[in-house]
Simulated scan of single mutants.
Amino acid sequence: MEIILNSIITCPTCGYQKEETMPTDSCQFFYECESCKTVLKPKEGDCCVFCSYGTVKCPPIQEHKSCC
């Protein structure tokens, strides 16, 4: 199984989208939108901002492992 490292994060406040490279060795708990400066945090039940707002889940989840 190939792990995808790029994900497009969509800000729920303003709709701005940006492709980001996900870290492979840690979770990203906070992400600041470049457009409106809203600080995104994971939704309840998600481990990171990529799992909540990205087009691709984080690498540990893709590998069916526990995240962080």
Score class of each variant (00 low, 15 high):
residue 55 T to C: 11
residue 59 P to N: 05
residue 39 V to C: 12
residue 3 I to T: 15
residue 33 C to D: 02
residue 16 Y to E: 07
residue 46 D to Y: 12
residue 61 I to V: 14
residue 5 L to F: 15
residue 51 C to L: 04
residue 30 F to P: 00
residue 27 C to P: 01
residue 64 H to R: 11
residue 20 E to F: 06
residue 66 S to D: 08
residue 59 P to M: 04
residue 31 Y to T: 03
residue 63 E to R: 14
residue 36 C to T: 06
residue 10 T to C: 03
residue 43 K to H: 14
residue 14 C to I: 06
residue 67 C to E: 00
residue 15 G to D: 08
residue 23 P to S: 06
residue 47 C to V: 00
residue 66 S to F: 13
residue 33 C to M: 09
residue 11 C to F: 09
residue 32 E to G: 12
residue 29 F to C: 01
residue 29 F to Y: 11
residue 55 T to L: 08
residue 15 G to Y: 13
residue 46 D to N: 15
residue 52 S to M: 07
residue 30 F to A: 03
residue 35 S to R: 13
residue 63 E to Y: 07
residue 61 I to Y: 03
residue 31 Y to P: 08
residue 64 H to Q: 09
residue 37 K to T: 10
residue 56 V to S: 01
residue 19 E to V: 10
residue 11 C to G: 08
residue 4 I to R: 14
residue 22 M to T: 00
residue 7 S to P: 09
residue 13 T to W: 07
residue 49 V to I: 15
residue 19 E to S: 13
residue 59 P to V: 06
residue 58 C to Q: 02
residue 67 C to N: 02
residue 23 P to H: 03
residue 41 K to L: 10
residue 27 C to A: 13
residue 65 K to I: 04
residue 58 C to T: 05
residue 46 D to V: 05
residue 54 G to I: 01
residue 9 I to V: 13
residue 67 C to P: 06
residue 18 K to D: 06
residue 3 I to K: 12
residue 18 K to S: 11
residue 17 Q to H: 09
residue 17 Q to M: 13
residue 57 K to G: 01
residue 4 I to Y: 14
residue 21 T to G: 09
residue 67 C to K: 01
residue 44 E to P: 14
residue 22 M to D: 00
residue 16 Y to D: 07
residue 52 S to C: 07
residue 13 T to V: 15
residue 24 T to R: 14
residue 12 P to I: 05
residue 39 V to D: 06
residue 4 I to C: 07
residue 16 Y to M: 01
residue 51 C to S: 03
residue 52 S to W: 05
residue 21 T to E: 09
residue 57 K to V: 15
residue 20 E to K: 05
residue 36 C to V: 04
residue 2 E to I: 15
residue 26 S to E: 08
residue 68 C to W: 04
residue 68 C to D: 08
residue 5 L to H: 13
residue 7 S to G: 05
residue 50 F to M: 06
residue 45 G to M: 03
residue 18 K to T: 06
residue 17 Q to K: 15
residue 50 F to G: 02
residue 49 V to D: 00
residue 36 C to K: 08
residue 25 D to R: 10
residue 62 Q to G: 09
residue 33 C to S: 09
residue 15 G to K: 10
residue 55 T to F: 12
residue 3 I to F: 14
residue 40 L to K: 05
residue 4 I to M: 11
residue 31 Y to G: 02
residue 19 E to Q: 13
residue 36 C to N: 06
residue 16 Y to I: 02
residue 4 I to S: 12
residue 32 E to R: 15
residue 27 C to W: 02
residue 34 E to N: 11
residue 55 T to N: 05
residue 46 D to Q: 09
residue 21 T to C: 07
residue 20 E to T: 02
residue 61 I to Q: 01
residue 31 Y to A: 00
residue 12 P to N: 07
residue 57 K to W: 06
residue 35 S to D: 11
residue 58 C to R: 02
residue 27 C to K: 07
residue 53 Y to H: 12
residue 62 Q to N: 07
residue 60 P to A: 03
residue 27 C to G: 08
residue 33 C to H: 05
residue 53 Y to K: 06
residue 32 E to D: 10
residue 32 E to C: 12
residue 61 I to G: 00
residue 57 K to Y: 11
residue 6 N to T: 13
residue 6 N to H: 14
residue 4 I to N: 08
residue 11 C to I: 04
